[in-house]
Design a protein around this nucleic acid. Sequence first.
DNA 1: CCATTTCTGATGTACGTAAATCAAAAATTT
DNA 2: AAATTTTTGATTTACGTACATCAGAAATGG
Lengths: 341, 341
Amino acid sequence: MRPTVHDIAAAAGVSLATVDRVLNQRPGVRLVTREKVEEAIRQIGYIRDVAAANLAKGRIYPLVFIVPTGDNSFMHGLRSEVHHATLRASIERTDIRIVEVPAFDVPALVAALDALLGRNIAGVALVATDAPEVRAAVDRLVSERIPVVTLVSDLTDSTRHHYAGIDNIAAGRTAARLLGRFLGGRDGDLTVLAGSMLVRDHRERLQGFSAVMAEEFPKLRLLPVLEGRDDPERTRSLVSKALSENRNIIGIYSLGAGNRGLIAALKAVRPERELTVVVHELTQHTRAALLDGTIDAVLNQDAGHEVRSAIRVMKATADGQAVIADQERIRLDIFLKDNLP
Amino acid sequence: MRPTVHDIAAAAGVSLATVDRVLNQRPGVRLVTREKVEEAIRQIGYIRDVAAANLAKGRIYPLVFIVPTGDNSFMHGLRSEVHHATLRASIERTDIRIVEVPAFDVPALVAALDALLGRNIAGVALVATDAPEVRAAVDRLVSERIPVVTLVSDLTDSTRHHYAGIDNIAAGRTAARLLGRFLGGRDGDLTVLAGSMLVRDHRERLQGFSAVMAEEFPKLRLLPVLEGRDDPERTRSLVSKALSENRNIIGIYSLGAGNRGLIAALKAVRPERELTVVVHELTQHTRAALLDGTIDAVLNQDAGHEVRSAIRVMKATADGQAVIADQERIRLDIFLKDNLP
DNA sequence: CCATTTCTGATGTACGTAAATCAAAAATTT
DNA sequence: AAATTTTTGATTTACGTACATCAGAAATGG
C-alpha cells in the first residue's frame, strides 16, 4: 500500500497535526521537528494523494483567457478549444472566463489586462501582441502574483511565467527546408505571406525561414513580405496581385492565418502556374487544399493542446508548484496529404 | 457549485442509497425508479467526481505490458517508458508488471499471454507479432473479459479492444511522399529496409510506401525489401552490400529499427554517394544523423504517449467506460533537422 | 523560577463517493 | 389476506487529505 500521512506521523514519531503543518508549510513547527518529519517523508517515499487533497481543499481556480476576435479559422478554433475547456471546468475545478479583444489592438488588450488587476484570479492566458504597453500590463499582473501565460504568441522581455506555444523560429526553419527541398534545385522567387509583423510568432517564423533560405537555398530569392492581417479577402487580393505581376514566383510560405484567401487566389491561377506552397494552421480549408494538391504541406500547432497546457501551467503556478517543461512542450505538427488526422 | 449525489437524491425524491444503486449498476432498483433517477441525473447535469470515486473505491488496476527484448533503441525506449509508468503507479492506482519476450518469437509470446489466463488482471498491453496463434491467445484473454490493447503493432482480425499506435499505412505513404518530393524528378532505385515482415506495422508501412510510389513517383523503382530483423549489425552489412552492388540507389526508406547499422553503412560511403534517406524512430543515433545530414527526415511515434494511452484505455475498458477515440489517436511526428525537440 | 511565548498533540469535521447493513415499505405471489 | 419476495430508505464507515480548535507541553525570556 502506498504510504499516507498517518505513516509519516508514525515514522517520525509526531502527531498528524504536525505532519500536516510541515506538508502545508503552516507555521508553528520547530526546525528540528520539521527536519525530522521531512526525513521521514523521504525515507518512506510519501507522495501526496493529489485527488484526495483537491477533494479536501475544494479549491477552484478562476482563470481568464484573453483571445483576439476575428473570423479566421485558427482563432475560431482556439476560442472553441477554450470553450471546450469551460465544459470540463467543474471536473477540473476551474472557472474559465473568455475575454475577446480586437486582433492587433494594443490599447484594447492593455485595458483587458488592467481590468483584471485586484481581482481574485488564479491565472491569465493571453494571445500577446508584442508591444511595450502590453508587456508593462503583463508585468503589473505578475507583480500582483497572478500567474500569466502567453498563448500561441509570446511577449518579448516580459516577466510572464510561461509560454504555451510552438517554437516559431523552428517552425519557420522547417517551412524553409520543406519548401527548399520540394523545389529541388530550381531557381526562382518566393513570396512570404504574414498576418502582421506586430506579433512575435509571425516575426519569428519569418526569421527562421529567412535564415535557412539564406544558408541553404541560395537559388531561391525572398520577395518582400505581404501583410494580409489574417484577413481572407485582403490576403486574396494581395496574392493575386503578386502572382500576376511576377511570373518568377515558384513558391509561397504563408506563416499567418487567413489562408482561405490564399487558397482562392491559388485556385484562380491553377493549372497554368505551378506553385509549391507551405502554410500554417490546419483548418477545414487548408485540409481540403492539401488533399486536392493546391498546397503541399501544412504546419500546425494543436490549439487544444495549447489551451490544456496553459491551464495546467496556471494551476501549477498558482499552487507554487514547478512546471514540468518537457511535458508542456508544444509540438510542431507537419501534415502532408497522407498523414492528415 | 457542481451537483453531487445528494442533489440527485433530492431531485429524484429518492434516497442516497438508491442513487448509489443506479450509479453503480447494483441490483435492487425497479425500472421506473431507475429511470426517474437517470432523468434527474440528466436534468441537473450530474457528473461523477472521479477523484472522489477512486478515493472511495481504493481500487487498483493490475496491468501487464508484454514487450520484446532486443537491443534496438526504440524497444529500449518503449521499455523505459513503461518503467516510467510504473513509477507513477501509486499515484495512478495501477500496478504494472513488465514481461519481456524475445522479438518475433510467436510461441514465446503465446506462452506469455496464456500465463495470464485466470489471473486477476485489469488489462494486458502487448507489442503484437501478427500470427494466428497470437491472435487466438489474445482472443482467449478477451473471452475471459480481460481488456487487451495492442501496442505499436496491431493484430489482424483479433478481438483486442484497442490499438495504441500510429496509422502505419499513412506513415508509409508519408515517407514515400517525402522521399519522392525530396528527390525532385530524379530517376533511380530505392532500397527499403524493414525489420521483419512478420509484424504488421512493418508490412503496412511498406504497403503505404509502395502505393504512393507507384501512383505518384513512377521514375523511382523499388528494390526488394531487405530484412534487417531490427538488428544493427545485420542491417549494416545488408545495406553496405546493396550499396556497393547497385550504383543506381538514390534513396533509402528504413521502416524498422536497427538504424544504428544503417547510419554506419551510410557514413562509410559518404561523401561520394548522395543519398536521400527517410527513417523511422527518433533515437539518439537518428537524431545525430539528422543533424549531421546523413539522413533527411525521421518519422516518429512517441512511445511515451503510446504507453500512457494504453494505460488509460485499459483502465477505462476495465471499468466498462467508453474510450474517447479522438483523444487516444497517436500522432505521426515528422522531424527534419530544424524541428527536433 | 515564574511568566510568556512558541511549539505540539488530540480531536473533530469536511470534501464526494463507495459500499455495507438492517429495517421498513411496497410489490408480487400464493 | 397472508406469506413471500423485491425495492427502497436510513445510517454508518471508509478513502486520504485539509483545516480548525483547544489544551497541554516545551522552550525562551526576564
